[in-house]
Amino acid sequence: MFDWKWEFAWEILPRLVVATGNTLLAAGAGYAIALVLGLFLAIAQRSPSRALTFVVRELVEFIRSTPLLLQIFFVFYVGPQFGIRLSPWMSGMIAIGLHYACYLSEVYRGGIDSVPKGQWEAAIALNMTTLQKYCRVIIPQAIPSALSGMGNYLVGIFKDTPMLSVIGVAELIHTANAIGSEHYRFLEPYTMVGILFLAISLPAAGLIRLMEGRVRRKMGLK
């Protein structure tokens, strides 16, 4: 290839591998937040209180239709204006976690809606509390149909972590930028970042499909 320097590529590989670790950590932590928060957002939209349902619904729509990049800046810069200082990691995780929580809440909502009405009635008939009803009856049955969406967003959050570079989280793109400006060479770092992303996201997508099939079989669905 044009001017591709293998020695340089080898030299920067260790730094990029460390950065890959950070990217995975950011994706994992963000996803964990999104998984939990998303569930609350989904259940809140089924609450008997019309006001709560409305507010949560609009909030989810708002966050889903505005750019994540802007939300990251918002969380990072608006806090200090009111005396709340957040580290780049902290604000990054809040922004990306909240953004994906909204996506996941839609996935959960679809899953919850797919649970037959008889199951809800049966849970009420057995005199279960709301908590028991969700934990023991509804959510376990909602998860299988939500799995494929959940998997897609896991890969999605991984691919969105480069945006965290703008507030200084030392993930892949941030490291590649730093390497590029130290050595005035952008070909190798950016190309390697692209390859690293492919090398992770393609197998991950395959693995997720495989797991999805297994969970579905375990739950006794085709």
């Binding site: 691919k159 972590t161 793109i173 952008f186 070909l187 692209g194 992303f197 393609l202």
Partner: peptide
């Protein structure tokens, strides 16, 4: 399989090379 930001940087910074 890669992210939009990576593609954007690649197109803008690497293609000129």
């Amino acid at each position: 399989g890669t992210s939009l930001l990576v593609q954007l940087y690649w197109i803008f910074f690497v293609l000129p090379l």
